[in-house]
C-alpha cells in the first residue's frame, strides 16, 4: 500500500470515526511523523483528510492557471504539501475552492461567535448611523422638521465622536 501523501510504502494505517463515518488513511513513516501522527492527542485525522481533499479542490479550481495568493505567494501545490493555508489573505484568494469544503467541515458558513471589540464597535456605529439616516429620510418625508433637525444633530454627533457614542 502506498502513502497518500507521497508515493513511498505506507507503514502507518489509521482509522477514525468522523461524524459516524469510518475514515481510513495510510502514511509512510516520514509523512506520519511530519503530520504528528505519533501523537494521538495532537493529531486530527480530520485535519489530514481535509488537507488532502482541499488540495484536490484547489487544484480543480485553478484548472490550468496557477492560482497564487497576492499577499504570500501561496499556491495549491503548497497546500498539498502542508495541508495548511499561507496567510489570512489566502481565504480570499482560494475562497471558491474553500467554500464547499468549509460547508462540509462545519456546522455553517457564517461565523456566530465572538467578534473583536474594535470591529464590533465599528459595526454598531455603522448600524446606528444607517438607522438614524432612515428615520431622518422618513421625518423629512413627513415634513416633521423638528424631529429631522434632532436626528441630523445626532448623526453629526456620531461622526464627530464615534468612540464616545459607542462606548459601553
Amino acid at each position: 500500500m502506498k502513502c497518500c501523501q507521497c508515493d513511498k510504502e505506507a507503514t502507518v494505517h489509521l482509522t477514525e470515526i468522523i461524524e459516524g463515518q469510518m475514515k481510513k488513511i495510510d502514511l509512510c513513516e516520514e509523512c506520519a511523523k511530519e503530520k504528528g501522527v505519533t501523537d494521538p492527542a495532537g493529531f486530527g485525522l480530520a485535519d489530514l483528510l481535509l488537507g488532502l481533499g482541499a488540495s484536490q479542490q484547489i487544484e480543480d479550481a485553478a484548472a490550468g492557471g496557477q492560482l497564487s495568493c497576492g499577499a504570500c505567494g501561496f499556491t495549491h501545490t503548497d497546500f498539498k504539501k502542508a495541508g495548511r493555508l499561507g496567510c489570512p489573505d489566502c481565504y480570499e484568494t482560494f475562497s471558491e475552492a474553500l467554500e464547499g469544503m468549509i460547508k462540509q467541515m462545519h456546522k455553517g458558513t457564517q461565523h456566530h461567535g465572538k467578534v473583536p471589540r474594535a470591529l464590533r464597535k465599528a459595526k454598531d456605529l455603522s448600524k446606528q448611523r444607517t438607522s438614524l439616516q432612515e428615520r431622518l429620510t422618513r421625518a423629512v418625508g413627513e415634513e416633521n422638521y423638528e424631529l429631522a433637525a434632532q436626528l441630523r444633530d445626532q448623526i453629526k454627533g456620531l461622526d464627530a465622536h464615534p468612540t464616545e457614542e459607542a462606548a459601553d
Binding site: 488537507g51 481565504y91 461567535g113
Partner: peptide
Amino acid sequence: DRLGYLTACPT
C-alpha cells in the same frame, strides 16, 4: 466578517 477568526487550517 463572515468566516470569523482566520486560522492556518480551515478546520
